[in-house]
Computed example of a mutant assay.
Amino acid sequence: MKKQQLAVALSLAFASAPSIALDGSDARSIAMGGTGVASANHLTAAFYNPAQMTKFDQSDDFGLLLPALNVSLHGTKDIYTDVEHFIDADKQLGKDFTTGFDATEAQRENWIDALKKLDDAAVEANLGLGFAITVPNNTLSVNLFSKTATATKLSLHIDESDLDITNKRDGDTMASTANLRAGMVTEVGLAMARNVTLPYLDEKISLGISPKIQKVVSYNLYDRIVELGSDEFKLPSDYNETTVFNTDIGVSYRPYESLTVGLSGVNLISQQVASPNINGHVSTFMVEPEFTVAAAYDNGWFMAALDVDLNESKQFDNTQGTQYARLGMELDAFNWAQLRVGYSAGMTEKSTNQVTAGFGLSPFGSLALDLAAKYGSETDMGVALEFSLNI
Rank of each mutant, 00 (worst) to 15 (best):
M1S: 01
M1G: 13
A9G: 10
A15Q: 10
A31L: 14
M32Q: 07
V37P: 00
N41P: 02
H42D: 08
L43M: 06
A46N: 13
P50D: 09
Q58T: 07
Q58P: 11
D61C: 12
F62Y: 15
P67C: 10
L69D: 00
H74I: 08
Y80C: 01
D82N: 15
H85F: 13
D90L: 13
K91R: 15
D96M: 06
R108A: 09
N110S: 13
I112W: 11
D113R: 11
A114G: 13
N126T: 08
N126S: 13
L129A: 04
G130M: 02
G130E: 02
G130K: 03
I133C: 00
T134M: 08
P136D: 04
N137Q: 06
V142K: 04
A151V: 08
T152S: 12
E160R: 07
D172T: 14
T177K: 13
G183V: 04
E187L: 04
R194K: 15
G208P: 07
K212C: 15
K212M: 10
V217N: 03
S218K: 03
L221W: 02
V226W: 01
S237K: 11
Y253E: 03
E257Y: 11
L259A: 09
L263C: 05
S264M: 14
N267M: 02
Q271R: 07
S275N: 00
N277P: 03
G280N: 04
G280Y: 03
H281A: 07
A296F: 06
Y297D: 11
A304R: 03
A305C: 07
D307W: 12
K314T: 12
G321P: 12
R326H: 00
D332W: 05
F334L: 13
N335Q: 14
A337L: 09
V341W: 14
K350C: 08
N353M: 14
F359R: 05
G360H: 01
G360I: 01
S362F: 12
S366H: 15
D370T: 09
L371N: 02
Y375L: 13
G376F: 01
E378I: 06
